[in-house]
């Protein structure tokens, strides 16, 4: 049986892993430095992480260059799936990351600006390696607006519509980041997770809000997520990956042991 995945997310800024609250901005010093990305990746590899996501939160040319180096170093030592996101704007950018050792790429703002990038990426590398990451905020009852630029700019898209469009274009996985829940440790936004999960046929990764062990189980049981992604709780040692997997397993959720 296909196991539910537990995925640590590493936000990389200037070669270091950082962590903020509700999409804290690097330039506003709203970030805490939590260490070297490759060291953290190795630690999570040991703990039994099912995948790892590296996110370039500078998304500049320099950021991308240092990200290639991070991915290469991580892939040299971790024999596990790696996803990379942030600032990938062209098919060539995607190719560079895949060649560096990434298995999947995560597209966000660039896909909203140029939806055809999803289609071009899927045609060149297969749907299975094109992940579309959606930053969503509840802006009205039962309405989630898609934001870009680290949660600063609202778009005209409703999250469910955009998820559906992305899958039509060839996205092989959707990551739903809840802006409201990010870093708040109050649980995932399972309303939107479930709504998207029921709407699309590709796997859904829940992101943003994990603070307690129950939250991971709820994302699967209530939000119908196929994978749970978290950052702070792992970086700051609240839980190890193995503790989360033990807990999910006790709740009867299939995880890889």
């Amino acid at each position: 049986m296909l196991a539910k995945r537990v995925i640590p997310c590493l936000d990389v800024h200037a070669g270091q892993v950082t962590r903020g609250l509700q999409f804290g901005r690097a330039e506003a010093s709203g970030l805490r430095n939590v260490g070297d990305p490759v060291e953290l990746a190795l630690r999570y590899n040991e703990q039994g992480a099912d995948e790892m996501v590296f996110f370039d939160i500078t998304a500049s040319a320099e950021g991308r260059k240092s990200m290639v180096d991070v991915i290469e170093r991580a892939a040299d030592q971790c024999f596990m799936p790696l996803t990379v996101g942030g600032g990938l704007r062209t098919v060539d950018d995607i190719r560079t990351m895949l060649r560096a050792g990434a298995d999947k790429v995560s597209l966000n703002s660039s896909a909203l600006a140029t939806p055809d990038l999803i289609r071009a990426g899927a045609e060149a590398f297969g749907s299975q390696c094109i992940v579309v990451s959606i930053d969503a905020k509840r802006t009205a009852p039962n309405h989630w607006t898609v934001f870009t630029h680290g949660g600063r700019k609202a778009t005209d898209w409703e999250a469910r519509d955009w998820a559906q469009k992305a899958v039509e274009l060839g996205a092989g996985e959707i990551v739903l980041n809840s802006i409201d829940s990010d870093g708040m440790k109050g649980g995932y936004d399972n309303d939107i997770n479930r709504a998207i999960s029921e709407l699309v046929s590709v796997p859904l990764v829940a992101s943003g809000g994990a603070g307690k062990l129950e939250h991971f189980a709820e994302a699967v049981e209530i939000g119908h997520a196929d994978a749970v992604l978290a950052a702070s709780v792992f970086h700051f040692g609240t839980f190890t990956i193995s503790q989360v997997k033990d807990y999910l397993s006790e709740r009867g959720i299939c995880v890889r042991r």
Partner: peptide
């Protein structure tokens, strides 16, 4: 059942 088949399987 979701496609793509992504993840760890027996």
């Amino acid at each position: 059942i979701r496609i793509p088949h992504i993840g760890w399987n027996d």
